[in-house]
Design a protein around this nucleic acid. Sequence first.
DNA 1: TCAACCATCAGACTTAAGTCTAATGGTTGA
DNA 2: TCAACCATTAGACTTAAGTCTGATGGTTGA
Lengths: 219, 219
Amino acid sequence: MKLENLNIIIADDHPLFRNALRQALSGSFAQTNWFEADSADALQTLLEQTDAPYDLVLLDLQMPGSHGYSTLIHLRTHFPELPVVVISAHEDAMTISRAVHYGSAGFIPKSSSMETLADALTAVLYGDIWLPANVELQQIDEDATDQMAAKLADLTPQQYKVLQMFAEGLLNKQIAYDLGVSEATIKAHATAIFRKLGVRNRTQAVIALQQLEMDRVEI
Amino acid sequence: MKLENLNIIIADDHPLFRNALRQALSGSFAQTNWFEADSADALQTLLEQTDAPYDLVLLDLQMPGSHGYSTLIHLRTHFPELPVVVISAHEDAMTISRAVHYGSAGFIPKSSSMETLADALTAVLYGDIWLPANVELQQIDEDATDQMAAKLADLTPQQYKVLQMFAEGLLNKQIAYDLGVSEATIKAHATAIFRKLGVRNRTQAVIALQQLEMDRVEI
DNA sequence: TCAACCATCAGACTTAAGTCTAATGGTTGA
DNA sequence: TCAACCATTAGACTTAAGTCTGATGGTTGA
């Protein structure tokens, strides 16, 4: 692959940071088309709408609507060809290890220099996995969080979207209106979601999703 | 107050850590009665059951069932005379500032030495506020989290307990059974909780509670 | 003593949620 | 082409959730 005419998505809720990132990288990646998303929802919309063959996603794990690793898991499941590089303010070994475990092609601390950033992206675009120096990857054992991650990956994109809206506290009627479908459809999705996640109702589903929050790390 | 014959509660979900803490402090605080709680629920039960005049609570903010600062807020509201010292693995200025903001009488990083620990407790027992050296307290502005904290403080102890059980995904019927009351009572509590929190249903209530998680910090 | 608050409960009720069945049409990969 | 999956929907249904009214008894502070 030649590193030009790239389509790169920056998914971060902070406009200033998105801008900074774009500025920092525009030197190294000329003629690149930059796309921006300020929420997990916007990111998903971007990926569904256009058929542009995106080359990379720069993903902040702490966006609104992004329940920790759930966005990463979802992306890797439904767009397996699309490399995802995680950008995060957290940079402990466990966070990085989980990100890699869930399919991230790289992990860039927000504290990185612009050169490091460009290096990392280049490496990933060439198919490598890029991690900060001196990180010792931890073994991610089959804990409850990991099991939930597997179940989450089992959801279809639409089901995932509905689950996210459950987690926003929306009623079936509101979700149906927002998605432009009937309430019966939402109920059908709900039943499917509950079955896949192994829960009985929406409150339990939301709790299960929240289990994937970044901070839910065992110490 | 003379520092003897004290009743101190250690609330931490890690048995090893509770033991270590107890061992470390038994030298400095002889003839002290130690009580232990491994969850927010156990802590609340302890405080309600016995009428023992507890002198101090050592509280880990990351216990099961403890939604971040919510336990602290609840303790300070309903047991204003009881000093609470927060113990945490997090030790950034924002976390500490929030803890103080919500009424903590001290903040002890888990990395502290035993001497530091004893010093801190002594200071707090004498009515001082103890913080790690070189911490600059941040201004906690009236954000959504803070508003939710105020609403949470408005709940009665029983309502708070029911809300916690909502957050565990329990059904009304199960909660009623566990608390030994009728389902009608739970429904009455539910309605009161929703009204106080300004939400419409239990899922939204759980989401609101989760807003107080420790990690929900703006960066 | 009395007002205020709290926890409790029942009963009747409305509404939201969730299940089940059955059906249609689109996409996709074998 | 065909099976498999997905999204969609309607309709009938069950159940859980939530509201409202009205009531009792206990506690507590003024």
